Simulated assay, not measured.
Amino acid sequence: MASRTSRISTATHPVLGVRALNRATLARQLLLSRAEMAASDAVEQLLGLQAQNVKPPYFQLHARLAGFRPAELAGLMESRRVVRMVTMRSTLHTHTARDAFILRSLVQGARDREIGHFRKGLVGVELERLAARARAFVEAEPRTMAEIRAELHREWPGAEPQALSVAARCLLPLVQVTPRGVWGCSGQVRLTTLEAWVPDVVEGHVGDEQSPEARLDGLVLRYLGAFGPASVKDMQVWAGLTRLREAFERLRPQLAVFRDENGVELFDLPDAPRPDADTPAPPRFLPEFDNLLLSHADRTRVVPAALKGRAWAGNQAYCTLLVDGFLGGLWRLGEEGVLTVQLFGHAADAVKELVVEEGERLIAGMAAEGGGSVRFGSIRG
């Protein structure tokens, strides 16, 4: 009976088609037109940048911000105003230091469940003691994961080394210290705690009396501001969390409610941008693992059903090209500044001209000095 009632009430809500959802999401993601915004503000607006690899956060901002140059984000990394750490979906993200503190605490339950998958390798290990031992070790000086694993294995020789390091990563808010993550620099992944890396930010939250429910509700509103309109399941996919329905229900009175063409209930901020479905969407070059493509349960608002899986080969993600707001091709930027673009299907000459223009902007802003060129070719079979 409850599900029938839900279907009846949902049926009264306005319907948003795929193109309307696409344009609304692109507007929140700063992809309909480049924003005149500081990089730190953009990182906060987007609730972080997927950072599996070092360079993608820089390309994500180039696609979204007017006049962006890699040195701006690099400077934020070096000054510790932004950090790299594991948060949503147990993957690395670049966050403002403040958001790193907020988000890491909200996803702790998911990290605790992750430890459960390794419980057979942790027999006899007291997790509270492991966390204290690991914290002291990495706060003495930043350590590699291999060093953390070896240190913990000395204390618990009967445990599985990989399980020990996973437990440390899940129990502690570990950040990757610079120069890792800085444009043009190289360096091993070395880790310390968020508290040790940005103590002023953490101390600013001491005594914060917000309840866990209030913090979660705030995150729901911010998610909708960055990725909405969206369903409960959409946010659960983005965050790697479950059982978020309660938070949405608490907020329902202050949210706008829609449904998609399949009848799925979608929530949104009442005053958030929802441009006309025919609003022009210029080509945009996105790096691998861009959150635009990973933050909804139903990805057809960006990835047409016919192209599902085309941006991946096994565990390898390709850099993607948006054409008219949707996945329309792949790209690769070579060391010589040669940008190779593979379009999916036929494209009119006018569309190709726009792609070349955007590609030249990418080369000028992100490639090595000395120029480059755009060519159409094959990235994958």
Rank of each mutant, 00 (worst) to 15 (best):
H153R: 14
V177P: 02
A214I: 11
F227N: 01
T192L: 04
A196P: 01
R190D: 01
L191W: 14
V138N: 02
W197T: 03
L171I: 03
S186P: 12
T193L: 13
V177Q: 08
L171A: 00
V198E: 10
V182A: 04
P179F: 12
H205I: 00
R149I: 03
L164E: 03
P212I: 10
T193Q: 15
V201F: 11
E147Q: 15
V202Y: 05
A168W: 14
V182M: 07
A226T: 06
L172A: 03
P212G: 12
P142N: 04
R180L: 08
C170I: 08
H205M: 10
Q188V: 13
T193K: 12
A140M: 09
R190P: 00
A167C: 03
G181C: 02
I148C: 13
A136M: 08
G225K: 12
M145N: 11
E155I: 05
L152N: 02
E213W: 09
A132M: 04
R143D: 02
G218L: 06
G187K: 09
P173L: 06
L172V: 09
D200R: 15
W197R: 10
Q188D: 15
A196I: 02
P161V: 03
L152D: 02
R149L: 04
Q176K: 10
T144P: 00
G184R: 03
V198M: 09
A140T: 12
R222P: 00
T193H: 12
F137N: 00
C170N: 10
E160C: 07
T193C: 05
R190G: 00
Q188S: 14
H153Y: 07
M145R: 15
V198H: 11
A134V: 11
Q176M: 09
R190N: 05
P179H: 11
V201C: 08
A167F: 01
F227T: 02
E209T: 13
R135M: 03
A230M: 02
L172M: 13
A132L: 05
W156Y: 09
R143A: 00
L191V: 03
F137W: 02
V206H: 14
I148F: 05
E141H: 13
A230L: 04
